[in-house]
């Protein structure tokens, strides 16, 4: 049986003390240990941002790529080797800002992988500008008079784009978060876990106490996770009460299930490169 320490990377995280991302890393390590997935079979992919440094801090294969591009790299890695457990991680700027086009289409595709977004509602690494999930009228470094745009609803977006497992966790409750991640990794299809992961340095509005006063768990209210319309409705609940937990889960054939090149069950990365069939292809030219 694997242990959390098996997933501890060589490098100590350099996040600010008190950053919500510590709890996300910890919950992910716990989820992987509880599922007993060998570190060398895990591929973590991220983009750029404070939270996207996560692959360097976990003992697993990592790909720390460009800003906003974690999902295409993760998709290619997963389609290239279906023996790997692929987990994409990043922040709200990375996933819902610069990379939102990929997010929309990855939800549609239902590739069997997990996407964890550490949503702190601000751009941390670039020192505190407004992000796609910054609430309206919040003053940030780039919006001194308050944001004019309304915040994006990541859970709602994931739902309408076709993600088959959509959940929200909170860094203030890492055990609950670990369970949501476990469910996401076990889920056969594209699983999205949006995590309230407060930025203690640049977001003075959406703080731990702010969330603690508001969050509640859907499972405590016997939420029906098979009810799509209810899930969408719940995704818009914001203000005095903010739901956490699994919003929606559905089984749908994965991209891998329907892709002809993967029917043999042998991952592409393990197939021989030499081709015996070139003469037959050549006939097409005649």
């Amino acid at each position: 049986m694997a242990h959390v320490k098996d997933y501890i990377g060589k490098v100590k995280p350099d996040w600010c003390p008190g950053c919500g991302d510590f709890a996300v890393l910890n919950a992910l390590q716990r989820a992987l240990a509880e599922l007993d997935i060998a570190p060398h079979t895990v591929q973590v992919v991220s983009g750029i941002g404070c939270s996207s440094n996560l692959p360097g801090f976990i003992h697993a294969y990592g790909f720390h790529g460009l800003h906003g591009r974690s999902l295409p790299v993760a998709s290619g890695a997963r389609l290239g080797n279906t023996d790997l457990t692929v987990i994409a991680t990043g922040g709200d700027g990375d996933g819902y800002g610069i990379g939102v086009g990929h997010f929309v289409h990855t939800c549609r595709r239902n590739i069997n992988m997990t996407y964890i977004v550490m949503d702190n509602q601000v751009y941390g690494l670039t020192t505190g500008q407004a992000s796609p999930t910054t609430e309206k009228d919040i003053r940030t470094k780039s919006t001194p008079e308050g944001t004019i745009e309304i915040a994006l609803n990541p859970v709602g977006l994931a739902l309408v784009c076709g993600a088959t497992y959509v959940a929200r966790g909170f860094s203030g409750d890492h055990l609950h978060l670990a369970q949501l991640m476990k469910g996401a990794i076990e889920h056969k299809g594209f699983a999205v876990v949006d995590v309230f992961s407060p930025c203690v340095t640049y977001n003075k509005h959406n703080t731990y106490p702010w969330f603690r006063e508001r969050v509640y768990k859907l499972e405590d209210e016997k939420h029906d996770t098979s009810d799509f319309r209810l899930a969408v409705e719940k995704s818009f609940e914001w203000g005095a009460r903010i739901p956490l937990g699994l919003f929606y889960k559905v089984e749908r054939p994965t991209y891998e299930d329907e892709e002809p090149a993967l029917r043999s069950g042998i991952p592409l990365a393990r197939q021989p490169l030499e081709r015996p069939d070139l003469a037959a292809i050549m006939e097409d030219f005649i």
Partner: peptide, 9 residues
């Protein structure tokens, strides 16, 4: 980026 992901593995 997808091709890079596939190339990486």
């Amino acid at each position: 980026n997808m091709a890079i992901g596939a190339g990486h593995v």
